[in-house]
């Protein structure tokens, strides 16, 4: 191809070229906050293993404004993850044929959202 002197455009900043790419990066970025939350939970478990005093310190952190603020950001990330996860789930699902019709994508997406709501409610009820 060098004989034709073709021009290869650089990929730098590719995500700024189309808002669809920024949405993708936002989706991928949820993983950072999801990981952060897992670390918070591990800290909690470690504190729990360390006895009542260390666990109370973790609970005290949870009550702090810093923690509440952090959780709001993490909550946004977690919810966005849930929404986008089930939105793309149909792409990885082999077609399920029932009789003559195959299961539409919307059923998979809706099913996922429904499951998320049910599981969330169950957790909230059990935890309360």
């Amino acid at each position: 191809m060098s004989a034709r002197n073709t021009y290869v455009r650089p990929m730098r900043g590719w995500y700024r070229r189309n808002p669809r790419f920024m949405a993708y990066l936002l989706r991928e970025g949820t993983s950072v906050f999801v990981a952060l939350y897992a670390l918070l939970l591990v800290w909690g478990l470690t504190a729990l293993a360390g006895g009542a005093a260390s666990y109370e310190r973790w609970l005290a952190f949870l009550a702090s404004p810093v923690s509440v603020l952090l959780h709001l950001v993490i909550l946004a990330a977690a919810v966005y993850h849930t929404i986008t996860w089930f939105q793309v789930a149909p792409k990885a699902t082999p077609p399920l044929v029932l009789g003559t019709k195959s299961l539409p994508d919307s059923a998979i997406i809706g099913g996922g959202y429904a499951a998320a709501v049910v599981v969330s409610l169950v957790i909230l009820v059990i935890a309360w």
Binding site: V68, L70, H71, L72, L75, H81, T82, G112, L124, A127
Partner: peptide, 21 residues
Amino acid sequence: GGVVAALVLPALVLITGLAWP
């Protein structure tokens, strides 16, 4: 992990981050 996180994390975050504090 994605499925588990999608189903379980929002409620957990709500608990540790808002409901309990």
